[in-house]
Computed example of a mutant assay.
Amino acid sequence: MANAFLKSSRLRLVFDHGVDEMNNPILKSKTFTNIRRDSSADELYAAAQAIGSLAANEIWAIERNDSYDIDE
């Protein structure tokens, strides 16, 4: 039976940079690596809000990306 082991976590913040000439949203992201693997969603949300308060643009999305090793 295969097992999945959490290898790493990343926090990705997507910022709203307005719209282009075709009225499509312009989104730019910043990824933070070496996030504690046992961080809860509440902790990551609080960290994202703190970082977002320092940014010039508004946060569009907050994402957590986990990477797993699958082994037997």
Score class of each variant (00 low, 15 high):
55 A>R: 14
51 I>K: 12
10 R>T: 02
6 L>V: 00
15 F>P: 04
26 I>C: 09
43 E>H: 13
11 L>H: 05
35 I>A: 03
5 F>I: 05
13 L>S: 04
4 A>C: 06
60 W>V: 04
31 T>S: 14
15 F>W: 05
57 N>Y: 04
36 R>H: 03
60 W>D: 05
34 N>S: 10
22 M>D: 08
44 L>T: 09
43 E>V: 11
38 D>H: 09
29 S>G: 12
18 G>I: 08
47 A>L: 13
10 R>Q: 04
34 N>C: 07
46 A>N: 10
32 F>M: 09
7 K>M: 00
25 P>E: 09
50 A>M: 15
5 F>D: 00
51 I>E: 05
21 E>L: 14
33 T>C: 11
4 A>D: 01
25 P>A: 13
39 S>C: 12
61 A>Y: 00
33 T>W: 02
18 G>M: 09
28 K>L: 14
54 L>I: 07
52 G>M: 08
40 S>C: 08
9 S>H: 00
2 A>D: 00
60 W>E: 07
17 H>T: 04
52 G>V: 08
5 F>A: 04
50 A>S: 15
21 E>H: 11
40 S>M: 13
20 D>Q: 13
38 D>K: 13
19 V>H: 13
15 F>G: 10
49 Q>S: 11
34 N>V: 01
30 K>R: 15
58 E>F: 04
14 V>E: 02
27 L>K: 10
37 R>K: 07
59 I>R: 11
44 L>M: 12
3 N>P: 03
26 I>M: 13
25 P>I: 11
42 D>C: 13
3 N>M: 01
34 N>G: 06
25 P>H: 13
53 S>Y: 07
51 I>V: 12
55 A>S: 12
52 G>T: 02
56 A>M: 10
47 A>D: 06
13 L>V: 08
